[in-house]
Design a protein around this nucleic acid. Structure first.
Length: 434
RNA sequence: GUGGGUGUAGCUCAGUUGGCUAGAGCACCAGGUUGUGGUCCUGGGGGUCGCGGGUUCGAGUCCCGUCACUCACCCCA
């Protein structure tokens, strides 16, 4: 019987792993450049941690199980609850701002599709303990820095940006109170997918003919940022504050130099969940794929876990959708195996020397390998190339006679002869000569 | 979870209206080549044609089921 990988789960062969690590390296490099510290949590949590916040829909996507004591656990479907738990537990001793990132592996029991798997990695970056929209702006700047890092431009991707308070105020202006807004958010989120006719039908079904859905529709499709902000400011004191906040956010984004990537879009509302302030998603401009990144401000998460109030803002970026987008745009690098030195013997008698040299060079931290078979020099060179070695080292008669080695730079095709002692004393330096 | 499409070697694909021992390129292995690769020749291994059943003298080809992938819905990274 043949057993394959479970549905929606991946094997990472070395070539896949190189790409995966390339992505992870970029995530880590960018995170650290903004002063973020890496953290991680357990691969599964008590089931309650996820049900408290999320509700039935997420729960139906959980891989959950019982231990022998009957306790209910679930493999994490997202990182934010774990983050909230960890931060709440030490809320009083962590220096602010808390700037943390993680690359957790997570599972959801969804039906797999392109760019959506049942097991995936997700880059999470969050700033906690800060109310200021400066944090919101910086978290968006982190996301944009990554997009730039992998060679994407404003022609390739867009950060669509909105804000829960703004959306709430727009809804209030047509008579929908905050307590009834969830269904409206859902419909707004799906406006593009539904199309005008289906949107109107479902809108009337939800709110009846008295609520002027057409006016909302005009705001969704035609209104400028200024018009939306004016409408928000007209909604009273809170509205004025929301407007000031959003303008401040935009000013910070300008200062960080990321505005070319950003675009206000009232249709971004981020489903249900815990968002309380600005929200944003990243899309490929010409792509049919869904968002590769989603995030926003969540100020009440730790209090939902009975912890002290710790406001936060952050995002998640999935490895699968990001890789799909990069593939679509031809931005994936060609990565070869990385080997510094391949040692070749010109005479099978000298193989013991090959092994000794390999041991010494490996001791210097150089990735070194050699052929397992005593075949001709030509074949060994062929293997050296196939392995992606930067240098070939030939052990031959010059070693027997004068303790010298031939070093060939396989990228440039040039070679020199160096004393073996030089190479063993300072190999990096000796290699640089050719 | 619900519907549509696809399924031939590790990968990309041929395979005529069902008809001899199922093919190609790339990749892999070995040799030509006992001191020079990435860009040469030659040969080899590898497929129960996703799996199971049915129709037929005969099925990679037709039918049913199933599994996987994929697209749409749901939801989302």
């Amino acid at each position: 019987m043949k057993i394959q990988a479970p549905p929606g789960m991946r094997d990472f062969y070395p070539a896949d792993m190189r790409l995966q690590n390339w992505l992870f390296d970029a995530w880590r490099r960018v995170s650290r450049s903004f002063g973020f510290s890496e953290y991680d949590g357990p691969i599964f949590e008590f089931l309650d941690l996820f049900t408290i916040k999320s509700g039935d829909e997420i729960v139906s996507q959980l891989f959950d199980f019982e231990d022998r004591g009957g306790r209910r656990f679930a493999i994490r479907p997202e990182m934010t609850p774990t983050l909230a738990r960890m931060v709440a537990a030490r809320a009083n001793s962590l220096p602010r701002p808390i700037k943390w990132f993680s690359i957790p592996r997570m599972c959801r029991a969804e039906k797999p599709q392109r760019g959506r798997l049942r097991e995936f990695y997700q880059w999470n970056a969050d700033i906690l303990g800060v109310d200021d929209v400066l944090a919101d702006a910086e978290i968006i700047a982190v996301a944009v820095a990554f997009l730039r890092e992998v060679g994407l431009t404003p022609e390739d991707v867009v950060v669509k940006l909105s804000s829960r308070p703004i959306a709430t105020a727009v809804l209030a202006s047509i008579g929908i109170e905050a307590s009834q807004a969830d269904r409206a958010f859902q419909l707004i989120d799906r406006y593009d997918k539904l199309g005008p006719n289906e949107f109107r039908r479902q809108w009337n079904e939800a709110y009846g003919p008295d609520v002027p859905g057409e006016r909302l529709e005009r705001y969704l499709t035609e209104a400028s940022l200024e018009q939306c902000l004016d409408l928000v400011a007209a909604a009273g004191e809170q509205g004025v504050a929301a407007r000031t906040q959003f303008e401040s956010l935009l000013a910070h984004l300008e200062s960080f130099g990321v505005m070319p990537f950003c675009k206000f879009d009232l249709r971004i509302v981020r489903g249900l969940g815990y968002y309380t302030g600005p929200v944003f998603e990243v899309f490929g401009r010409r792509s049919e794929l869904r968002a590769v990144l989603g995030g926003g401000r969540y100020d009440d998460l730790t209090t939902m876990l009975d912890g002290p109030r710790v406001p936060g803002v952050g995002f998640g970026m999935g490895d699968a959708p990001m890789m799909e987008l990069l593939k679509e745009l031809g931005k994936l690098p060609e990565l070869e195996e990385e080997l510094d030195i391949f040692i070749i013997d010109a005479d099978p008698q000298l193989f013991a020397t090959v092994q000794e040299l390999a041991a010494a060079l490996r001791g210097h931290g150089l990735a070194t390998d050699f052929s397992y078979k005593r075949v001709g020099v030509s074949k060994q060179f062929k293997q050296a190339s196939a392995r992606g070695a930067r240098y070939a080292l030939v052990v031959g008669s010059e070693y027997v006679e004068r303790r010298e080695l031939t070093v060939k730079n396989l990228e440039r095709g040039e070679q020199i002869i160096v004393p073996a002692d030089d190479l063993l004393r300072a190999p990096q330096e000796a290699l640089q000569r050719v």
